[in-house]
Design a protein around this nucleic acid. Sequence first.
DNA 1: ATTTTTGCAAACCTTTTGCATGGAA
DNA 2: TTCCATGCAAAAGGTTTGCAAAAAT
Lengths: 145, 145
Amino acid sequence: MDAPTITDALGAAGYRLTAPRRTLAALIAGWRGHFTADDLVRTSTRRRLGVGRATVFRSLDVLTDLGLVERLDLPSGEHAYVACEPAHHHHVVCSSCGRAQEVGDLGLGEMSGAIERATGYRIDTHRLELFGQCPDCRRAGRGTA
Amino acid sequence: MDAPTITDALGAAGYRLTAPRRTLAALIAGWRGHFTADDLVRTSTRRRLGVGRATVFRSLDVLTDLGLVERLDLPSGEHAYVACEPAHHHHVVCSSCGRAQEVGDLGLGEMSGAIERATGYRIDTHRLELFGQCPDCRRAGRGTA
DNA sequence: ATTTTTGCAAACCTTTTGCATGGAA
DNA sequence: TTCCATGCAAAAGGTTTGCAAAAAT
């Protein structure tokens, strides 16, 4: 059995399966590393895929809501996205090639409880992003992008 | 002995102590909760403080470099800042009033090592932001901003 | 037939930059 | 006196929106 595709998930969630959405789903599924909205817009333009800027942004919103894609805030302040599984997790992002790997909860849940007790806050959500260099890039001696 | 002020730290770092910088330092030190660049610009305009937009952005850069202020990426995608101590730490941010409290390392260092072993990445930096409601807001029954 | 989705272009908002002036050291 | 820093206004990015046309259900 194949892994469910982004397109499948869109359909299952009741979104119409339009050509632009299929195109973007394929683009994203095949993307290496993280990408920006503008990466998608430029690819669409260059390869004449016929997907407009507004559609790219609107689709990224939908995909983000469904948890199929996650928005990263890079240390540079740029916004990038990576495809991912729709479950709570965190990413280790390679600062050379931009690829991201998911890691599990890592005990942050318990940590969260400890912080609640220590500060009196009620914690709703958190965001953890880890940046470093992946094994491939390290081996290849690539610098930070 | 008083806590060193933002102005002190600027001077110690070799930056010139200009009127706009003193003004911004005071504004930031007295700010409740997080603020955006535009909050500072608007305050300057409204109160005729004579600090221009460019200077606000340039100063926030300096203060961020010195670690006197930290840039937050709110879940909404907005960029906000909070004053803080220049040491590695994380913030618990109140989603009602925007105030932030610092928390220590929380064992993330060890976690980082575990992730390196599990993924093969060499982790350089990370960003952890926790969002929730502070005791005051919870008590007052305030909703999420 | 109905409702969603799209592309385009313009609008918007935030952040950055060029440059002549002003101020700190 | 020498640079650093500032304000202004324009430019540059990135994202959103209004709307009529096109496509999915």
